[in-house]
Design a protein around this nucleic acid. Sequence first.
DNA 1: AAGGGTCACAACCGCCGCCCT
DNA 2: GAGGGCGGCGGTTGTGACCCT
Length: 305
Amino acid sequence: MGQHSCCNQQKVKRGLWSPEEDEKLIRYITTHGYGCWSEVPEKAGLQRCGKSCRLRWINYLRPDIRRGRFSAEEEKLIISLHAIVGNRWAHIASHLPGRTDNEIKNYWNSWIKKKIKKPSTQSSATPTQNLFQPGYSSTDQLDVIINQNLAHQNLTPKPVSDSIFLSQSPFFTFDASLGSSCDSSNPSGSVRDDLAQDVQALNSCKIWSNNIPTSANFASAIDPNYLPPLVDSMSIGNLVTMEEGETSVGGCYEKQQGETDWGDPQNYNGLLMWDQMQGDLGGEGIQVQDASSALDTTLSSFPSR
DNA sequence: AAGGGTCACAACCGCCGCCCT
DNA sequence: GAGGGCGGCGGTTGTGACCCT
């Protein structure tokens, strides 16, 4: 099961692709298209399995691949989308033009590694942290977070637990795994505490209150098969690439004038916009100024490059 | 300069789901 | 409906480059 017939061939080559192989694959696909991947190696004169050819094309040779470092906007988008859809890299990649799932996955994993390595500076769990325990449903978490934020703005909470939130689909994929690290039954704490705080802060930061959540807004997040057109209206040319000499404060790159190229955040209704967050982005680590008000949470622990 | 550690990225592996027979 | 082929996806590993001591 799962073993592709083409991969059983003894003569199939593995490992890094040579420039000659790349050239063969490019030449074949640009002239014939790939059609059936299992036929590609033979027709292209490659001693690779079709799966390997597909991967090489998708992750490296495709002409529309964007290479190089992720821009700050892309970082934000990845982090925001991950908070919504979890480890669905292909889904996330579909909203980042020119980026591959593999690339995003690698980026994320390296970020996670950094976070795990980073010594924890927060020992006590906040009330918000306690929400992210396995015992809480996604609906519970959403209700509390949203109402917290609305209350903070003296806005009338809207009933968010309508039918659309009865979905069994997980909203915060981090909840179960990270929540356990915040569990009081785990007094030894976890090196992942600060990572959990990042996620919790993201979940409860002002982006929710600026785009007041409604069922419609959250539909995309709740339904695993639906994602809002996050970047459809954004051309690749608008993406900001981090240039040498520009600063990345805790991974949150800031343009010199503090402006984004995304224009009016309202255009991205439903999308988590880091640019709308307020607070001091400088320094390392998270400063939870008031445990009861996660809105004031300062985020600054994104991967720095 | 050399060796070890770290990081980024390419590639592989195994599983899942769809489609066709 | 069952089984096989295949594309797609996420997790994991391998490897080369770079950095630090």
